[in-house]
């Protein structure tokens, strides 16, 4: 008995602070939020709240504003993931082919990641100015100077949900593409050169080399990238807040709606939005985690 404690005791002690902190500040507070979301705590008033079951959730899904924010989020996530994967892969491919000054380009592509979302959001807010024609400013002005007037557009201030949220995704794509590039570049570098040589000796064309030899080996990285981007997109708040302000119906996503709801002290509703958001992230992350666990178990 004493011996057994000797084996797992120190490890448990080292883990204990982490377990306690995570248990309280993450899982404990998730439970707390979920509990709040089942009550009628709709004001800052103290005192006991009553349990109302899933009423807050039912109300949320019957509400135009919330459904609008969910649809916005869906479109944003698709636009953001597709855009970032395309640009990340493209840059990685260009660098992987070997260019002079690779380090410089790598830094340039990675730098946007170092900027906080709120700062880049403020600047992109100016760049995405919707004025056109003679008054054009920001990117529209740039298009006018380059004689690309047909590209001028109202960005997120008019048009369909797709164009609106794609305009919002643009800064996020700009910011995260470098990171995805780094992921893919590391993936390419991790493939043993022997494989390429073997493929070339077998007479594979450059296209076939990538299609059948290199890309299949990148699929675990692509999956990780997908998960990382997906959860970033679901939690996106600061960038949208900085570009459009707090009460913009056109670009509102659940995280911003949650903030608005909390500002008016409707704690139960805000907690319900938070739990829905958490569920969205869980849908994405849990299958990934179980898949990774199975892969590791196989090895």
């Amino acid at each position: 008995m004493h011996g057994r404690i000797r084996t797992w005791g120190p490890g448990a002690l080292v883990l204990l602070p982490t377990v306690l902190l995570l248990g309280y500040f993450v899982y404990g507070l998730i439970a707390w939020s979920f509990n709040t979301s089942l009550t009628d705590r709709h004001t800052a008033r103290k005192g006991p709240a009553h349990y109302v079951g899933f009423e807050n959730y039912v109300n949320l899904f019957g509400e135009d504003r919330f459904l609008n924010s969910l649809k916005n989020l869906g479109v944003l996530t698709v636009a953001f993931i597709v855009g970032t994967l395309i640009f990340g892969l493209l840059w990685a491919l260009l660098l992987e082919k070997g260019v002079t000054g690779e380090g410089v380009f790598r830094s340039i592509f990675l730098f946007p990641m170092a900027i906080s979302m709120i700062a880049s959001g403020v600047v992109w807010g100016w760049l995405l100015n919707p004025s056109q024609g003679d008054d054009a400013r920001g990117l529209n002005r740039l298009f006018a100077i380059l004689h690309l007037n047909f590209l001028e557009n109202p960005w997120w201030t008019a048009g369909s949900r797709w164009t609106t949220m794609a305009a919002i995704a643009l800064p996020a794509v700009w910011q995260m593409s470098g990171y995805i590039m780094a992921l893919f570049l590391a993936g390419f570098r991790g493939i043993p050169p022997e494989l390429r040589e073997a493929a070339r000796v077998d007479g594979a064309s450059e296209f076939k080399l990538y299609r059948y030899v290199l890309f299949p080996q990148l699929s675990p990285i692509a999956l990780s990238a997908l998960i990382i981007l997906g959860h970033i997109s679901l939690k996106l708040f600061d960038l949208i807040y900085a570009i459009t302000g707090p009460n913009q119906f056109r670009t509102e996503v659940p995280s911003i709606y949650m903030w608005n709801t909390l500002l008016r002290s409707d704690q139960a509703k805000a907690a319900a939005i938070a739990i829905v958001l958490l569920a969205c992230v869980a849908v994405l992350v849990i299958p990934y985690l179980s898949w990774t666990a199975r892969q590791e178990a196989k090895q």
Partner: peptide
């Protein structure tokens, strides 16, 4: 208006503007 009422009105007006 209260903060909450204001919040809803601002949201409706931003929708109207588009």
């Amino acid at each position: 208006c209260t903060l909450g009422q204001n919040n809803d009105i601002l949201s409706a007006l931003s929708q109207f503007s588009g």
